[in-house]
Design a protein around this nucleic acid. Sequence first.
DNA 1: CCATAGTATGAGAACGAGTCTCACTATCTC
DNA 2: GAGATAGTGAGACTCGTTCTCATACTATGG
Lengths: 150, 150
Amino acid sequence: MYGVWIHTVANIGCVMAGQQDLRLTPQRRAVLEVLRTAHDHPTAAEVYARVRAVAPGIGAATVYRALGLLVRAGYALELSLGNGVAARYDANVARHDHAVCDRCGRAADIDLPVPAELVNALSRRTGFAITGYDLQFRGLCPACQTNGPR
Amino acid sequence: MYGVWIHTVANIGCVMAGQQDLRLTPQRRAVLEVLRTAHDHPTAAEVYARVRAVAPGIGAATVYRALGLLVRAGYALELSLGNGVAARYDANVARHDHAVCDRCGRAADIDLPVPAELVNALSRRTGFAITGYDLQFRGLCPACQTNGPR
DNA sequence: CCATAGTATGAGAACGAGTCTCACTATCTC
DNA sequence: GAGATAGTGAGACTCGTTCTCATACTATGG
């Protein structure tokens, strides 16, 4: 199913620190586009479904590969929100955290920096070379609260 | 393989707040014992392997069921440390966080309370009814640092 | 002691997410 | 154009986990 694509392959320029060049094939562009227009932290399976809606011929392996590449190249974040099994993706690569709904798994972005001095103290205490952190809050999202107890 | 067990079934008394009564069958006791003697946050698969070493006849379903029950009854925590796919378990049910090694997946316990007022502010801002949080630091553990870059 | 109801177990099938393989197709460089 | 290299799609496969079901155990009331 190569034929349906408009073959304008180009590299993504190095726009932000930490992002590396990556050949932007139509498939990868579609995945990135889905990620950028989604504001709901889709799972890989959801990304796959949405990409298929735009580009029916694309294969699962390609989508998973593209997601991995985009994450490694710094164009997306992989969230391990811990509920269920599926990883979720986020094209907002600025440092931010998430509030995760225990019921429906939805995640809301939040911004809450942890003081750097605290990270340093921690690094000294544990011996870990700390490169980053993930802060997740759990609870019920507004929708699930109004829907009442399960 | 029922026969090999010493059938001393009793309920776990209600020792801590949040823990509920649970029939402590030999199998469940074995799982809990493995969890309590492990200080390395084993994955469910690792728990299964260790329990099998003590009780060769036990089935995977039983171990997974027991882990789920122990978590729901408040005797263990399920950690979603985000690396790889497997959940990890921890018999230390006091609130604490983890530093996770990016290379080997090992997790170290850390203790770093997030101020309650901050949680409240967040709750107001996102509309979430926040019930808890997970803070994970990432980096390289001392062992993986000395082993040099991969 | 026995009958019966309820609960727990083990084996293995089934499931879902994700990865691997391989033949094929595009693209790049000469 | 002719390689060389990289990317793709289909489908088989792996792995962690859950489900199903027949069987075994335990508790309770005669």
